[in-house]
Amino acid sequence: MKLHAIKGELAFAAFFAAVGLVWIVKASSLPFWSGFAPDSGFLPVIYGTLLLLLSAGVIGTLLLNPPDGEVEREPLSKSFKLLGILVLTVGSLGYVGFAAPLFLMMFAMFAYVERLPIVRSAIVSAVATGIFLLVFQHWLKIPVPITPWSY
């Protein structure tokens, strides 16, 4: 029962431990020492080991002293929706340029996630997209690909 309350936290610490493990494995194929000084693999192995141990420590502390009672957490669903939209947006940038995905992203967040009035959402999204592209593309001369034909 208590384990249920902290399983997310445990999984997250385990993720860091796994990253440490990846670094140890990958670094062990690199040379450790050359001449007088450490080579490319030396510090990464140490970092990986330390991260593994520290994450294990976090897990151990959690298991030994689980937090009393249910921890108040924010609901997850909205954050996941936003993250999903963000990933879709970034994924489409390479195909259709920046203007459409950025507009649609903001519009989806306003109108779908936040249930705001549709017309106002569209106006705000369009204006914001315009301002950002004006500043970055036009004033700062960043070659932001705006449309699919800008590539």
Partner: peptide, 23 residues
Amino acid sequence: YKWLYPPIITLCIVGVFSQANSL
């Protein structure tokens, strides 16, 4: 805040892209 955060995310995306023109 609900009117503020979508443009914040947009700013992050465009800003980060412009750093090295990298998707």
